[in-house]
Amino acid sequence: MTYSVAVSGASGYAGGEILRILAAHPDIEIRTVTAHANAGQPLIRHQPHLRSLAHLDLQDTTPEILSGHDIVFLALPHGQSGQYTDALSDVGLVVDAGADHRLVSADAWDAFYGGAFHEPWAYGVPELPTASGKQRANLVGATRIAAPGCNASTVSLSLAPGVAAGVIEATDLVTVLAVGPSGAGKSLKPHLLGSEILGSANPYAVGGVHRHIPEVAQALRAAGAAEVRLSFTPVIVPMARGILATSSARIAPGASDTDVRAAWERAYGDELFVQLLPEGVYPRTADVIGANTALMGLHIDRDANRVTVVTAVDNLVKGTAGAAVQSMNIALGLPEDRALTVNGVAP
């Protein structure tokens, strides 16, 4: 069966990456691409790397244009997806790459986003450990999927195995993330200009205000944490793509070094796209560019009584578009890795 697809926000980074992956998907026909300010223009003007889609023009983003497809991907800024999802009842599968359907708590949405709260959808991080298994089970047959925030899924995947196994304390978590500016979208922002970021590392959303914090806390509670306290500090660095998240947690009393490493080995030993590296080996963002992989290195520091997990992802693939397509594959009963690769691009 071939599924017809519409992609909104197709002129942006996330929308463009969804299109790049779907263009190689044998079960997908990309029929419609939409935008807002760029509507009426050729897609290729905004995504010149997508040569196989040069025949498509950007249409207006309206419920009428998005309806009538088998699958709709929404790659819109937070607060914009809900107005469309409410009107797409005739679409069999909707995947939202924005934030509107990620959070289960209306209070958390009000505190970190504001505006209208929309119902939570199945969370699109299949490998994420939960108290009852993996998030993958909640995606089987799903008709509405919320793709993750890139920083949030990276940190959640880093720490959830330790929470689920009871070998770390979720009340003392610290993460610092080196992040490429493509994660902030394609809209012009002065602080993301090349002249501002080249040769510099720039912290932002410091002090517990980053919008991905409640998403991480939600994931870790689903893994079994009774309470989550997280210090979260992102830093923009001069690389177009990528996240390198260095996360640490206090080791729970009685947990041995063997217990700690075994928690991550059990969680990801059978996973294709989330891989724990050998002891003493740590990933680089260069190792995952273009790939749907999250690579992790783990170190146990007994002097500090902490475990440190260093995780690298491509924020536009495993962090966003790859997770969205992987979740779509699961929901439709297709091979989970269809159109997705573990191989990055080097140098």
Rank of each mutant, 00 (worst) to 15 (best):
A37W: 03
E17C: 10
A226T: 14
I236Y: 07
L198W: 07
V310T: 15
T311I: 07
L43A: 02
D70M: 06
R221N: 12
V163L: 14
V288K: 05
L340D: 10
A249R: 08
F273S: 02
L19W: 08
D314W: 02
A294Y: 11
G290E: 06
A225M: 04
A240H: 12
R284W: 10
N38L: 00
A339L: 04
I213Q: 11
A23K: 07
V206T: 14
N305I: 08
H210A: 15
L340I: 12
G242K: 11
S156C: 09
D27P: 05
T171C: 05
P161K: 12
T258W: 06
D57T: 13
G82D: 04
D301T: 06
A324T: 11
D270S: 14
L19A: 07
H101Q: 06
P234D: 11
E119G: 09
D70T: 04
I71N: 08
E215A: 12
G162Q: 02
N343G: 06
L19S: 08
L277Y: 01
D100L: 02
V325G: 01
L128E: 07
T308A: 09
Y13E: 15
L332R: 14
T308Q: 14
V237P: 08
P126V: 12
I21P: 06
V313P: 01
R102D: 03
Q135F: 03
A262R: 09
Q275I: 12
A6D: 09
L188P: 10
V228N: 05
R284N: 13
A323C: 07
P26S: 10
P283M: 08
T175D: 00
G185L: 05
P42E: 10
T2L: 10
V281R: 13
G16H: 03
V72G: 12
L74M: 10
L193Y: 13
P181G: 05
S200H: 15
G82C: 00
I300Q: 09
A249T: 09
R221C: 10
G224M: 11
S248Q: 14
A267N: 02
S248F: 01
G9Q: 07
D86E: 15
R136Q: 10
I300N: 11
P203K: 07
R229K: 15
H36I: 04
R229H: 15
A321K: 02
E29P: 00
Y282D: 07
F273K: 01
G115N: 03
R241F: 13
T2Y: 04
A291E: 04
G269W: 00
V274I: 13
H46T: 04
G224A: 06
A324W: 03
H49E: 15
A219H: 01
T293P: 04
A137T: 15
F73Y: 10
I18H: 08
N138H: 15
T320S: 13
G141S: 13
E17F: 11
E119V: 10
D259Y: 03
E127W: 08
Y268I: 04
T32H: 00
M296L: 14
T154K: 06
I236P: 01
I145R: 07
Q80G: 00
K189F: 13
A14R: 07
Q41M: 10
A201T: 09
A152N: 03
A165R: 09
I30P: 10
Y3K: 14
I251S: 03
